[in-house]
Amino acid sequence: MSLLTNFHFIMAVVYGYSSYFYVYGVVQPAEITAAQKSTYGAIKYLTYWDLLVQCAFFTLCFLSNVFSSAQQNKRKTAPEKILDFLFSSIVFPLALFTDTTFWGLYFTDRELVFPKVYDDFYPSWLNHVVHSLPLAAALLEMLCVQRSFPSYKKGFLCNSLFLAIYLSWVLFIAHTTGDWVYPVLAKLPTPQRSLFIFGLFVLMWLCYSVCRILYSFKWRQPARSEKKVHQKKNK
């Protein structure tokens, strides 16, 4: 197997095992579990959503490496186009968003996002797989693979829709259980909470834009759709 295929395989295994361990290997003390009204488990956290997204993406990348019949200088297959779209609109922006928001809040006041008591039962290696590895792996993917991007509008809408779905999930949990997923949301008054949520959308949009900008720097060309790239080659 090529180095790229090995990389995709390793990332798929790491994310797959970490997703499993996150749910079945992390055992919270009874007093912490009792204090949480929500019973939705790991699926209520954006970091776990990101873990699943990264696992699915790198698994599909590995399978594409192994089974794809596409050859150089030919148009990409449908699965490859889907991977390109997912990487630019969700995978990279979500990795950047998750890592920057977590560590930004962590170093500001860790009790707002990852209370110190978690250190007793939440492994350090898992913390870094969940909150550090996604961006590192996404950057390496961008350096190694030249991908085609959707139009800015399509990628922007997909990016926004993903975050809107997750935030709707957070609000649903808060409405039905009275338990905010993140302590920082619980501590903010309603007006400031609304501004904070809007700020998250702005940050996610910035992360999407950063993805396209970094791509342009690396590959010395604007982020364009596969169709436009193909049309240029045929001129």
Rank of each mutant, 00 (worst) to 15 (best):
W180Y: 12
T59H: 07
V53Y: 12
N6V: 12
F121K: 01
F107D: 04
Q72A: 07
I43R: 06
F121H: 03
T98P: 00
V170F: 04
T177S: 11
V202K: 05
V130P: 00
S216L: 05
Y15D: 05
G155K: 01
G41L: 08
K154H: 15
H8L: 08
L4Q: 14
V145N: 05
L140K: 10
L195T: 13
W219R: 01
S225H: 14
F217P: 10
L133Q: 04
L200P: 07
E80K: 05
G104E: 05
G199C: 04
F87Q: 04
S160Q: 10
S168F: 04
T33W: 12
W219D: 03
R220S: 00
I213N: 11
W49C: 02
Y22D: 15
F92Y: 15
N73K: 03
F217W: 15
W49I: 06
V129Y: 06
I165W: 08
L133A: 08
K153L: 15
Y208W: 09
T33H: 12
K153A: 13
W180L: 02
A34Y: 14
T98R: 01
L112I: 06
A137W: 02
K187V: 06
V210E: 12
Q36V: 11
I32Y: 08
V27K: 11
I173K: 09
R224H: 14
Q146I: 04
C211S: 09
S2Y: 15
A70V: 15
L135C: 09
V181S: 03
S89I: 00
G25A: 08
A12D: 07
T5N: 12
R147E: 06
W180Q: 02
D179K: 13
Y20T: 14
I90G: 01
Y45K: 06
Y40R: 11
G16D: 15
P29Y: 14
V117T: 15
R220T: 00
I32G: 00
T39K: 14
S151F: 06
V202H: 07
V181L: 08
Y22R: 10
P222K: 06
G16M: 14
P29G: 06
I82A: 14
A95P: 00
L203R: 05
F196L: 03
T177N: 06
A136L: 06
G25F: 03
I82K: 10
L3N: 05
W103G: 11
T100R: 02
A223I: 11
I10Q: 12
P183Y: 04
G199F: 09
P115F: 03
P115A: 01
H230M: 07
S88D: 14
V26M: 10
C144A: 09
F57L: 07
D84V: 10
V181D: 04
M204S: 11
